[in-house]
Design a protein around this nucleic acid. Sequence first.
DNA 1: TTGTTATTCAATAGAATACTTGATAACTTG
DNA 2: CAAGTTATCAAGTATTCTATTGAATAACAA
Lengths: 218, 218
Amino acid sequence: MASGDAKQTLFEAIALMGKAFASPRRLELLDLLAQAPRGVEELAEQSGQSVANASQHLQALHLAGMVTRTREGTRIRYAIAGEEALRIWLALRDASAAGLAEVERAAHDYLGEDVETIGREELRERLARGDVVLVDVRPAEEYAAGHIEGAKSIPIDELDQRLEELPDDREVVAYCRGPFCAYAHEAVRQLNARGRNASRLEDGWPEWRLADLSPQTP
Amino acid sequence: MASGDAKQTLFEAIALMGKAFASPRRLELLDLLAQAPRGVEELAEQSGQSVANASQHLQALHLAGMVTRTREGTRIRYAIAGEEALRIWLALRDASAAGLAEVERAAHDYLGEDVETIGREELRERLARGDVVLVDVRPAEEYAAGHIEGAKSIPIDELDQRLEELPDDREVVAYCRGPFCAYAHEAVRQLNARGRNASRLEDGWPEWRLADLSPQTP
DNA sequence: TTGTTATTCAATAGAATACTTGATAACTTG
DNA sequence: CAAGTTATCAAGTATTCTATTGAATAACAA
């Protein structure tokens, strides 16, 4: 039987990847990248940290194989590394949410009171029937980087000015970054306040995409 | 919109869970627990670390919600926390194996040359047809804690003395802890050396169990 | 009670990590 | 080529993590 040494190397390599998920700052970057690829400066700003720091975290993520980097002229574009990376990140997030009351509480504080929710499968069926208007309320760049087929982009900031763009004979479904993203909640509240029938997709774009990539995900 | 504070808390809570996967020693404990529940002392010994150290790591895993602990008289029995924990651990392990050439190399050093492999689905079909003898070559306690239905327990150490227990009109399939466990490889080599037709299941008990728990896993 | 066994706690030294600031490198554009 | 962007590197300090040691606790048996 081989030495325990090789086995040790194995665990060390996996831990290297695990370390990538051990810092809130890195997770925040990963969360942003799950929506759309970005440059270092944008990532730094949107996650509220210094550029140098963000760069270091991004390198750590890159070393762990969780993100890819491509040079685009003068900027470097980071993107999430692929299905595996996305799957781990979502699994970790969900497990944490399921396990810790603290997360629940924080989420509730952040998201506000509940609004009506619709599941992925139901949405798919109703889209096929032409039964609903689907609105992507994330920032326009994230929509541009990828979105649910058939969705219309109305960033949450512009929603109240662009209400008439939504046909009023159909129910509205809003979605955003995921279950812990406040945009869709907010959108549904605004729509309800205007007397519109609206609900939000239970999760967001990354989950939808992952489900499309590997149809067996629940 | 709520403060970024609650959002921050969210990432911190997830990172807490991520930290659980950031140390090779902890991962080794988790890997053992993925096979069967155990007491602290056994875990310490089987992973080659001091009892106090193992205890601390186990507490970290417990805090992160990855393991459960139950008192049983004078000993405390740790077990992997559930489907979620198992899924994350396997996802991480696979992603690491897929991404890093180093892991490949270490695995190859450890496992030796390739032997014939059979997939989960194929095994399931052939078991249903009564076409193969399935042998669990892990230690007896791990078999006792859970095994593939229809498998016979022959720990790898005893295999050469118990060859006649295997009917020689059927092919043998061996399985063990998972793709990086050497037992099944070794078993197939031994069987081949005796002129038996044998192959190993491509992964192991935890993967089989997870697939049963949530049938959609690939 | 007094051992015995199994586990955890507390203290500590050394290693690794996080974030800051200021300098440097790679590439574009004028 | 010089000036301007964008990203990384390097060094320093504060913090956190890891593994070790030896002592403390909890459950049980004699």
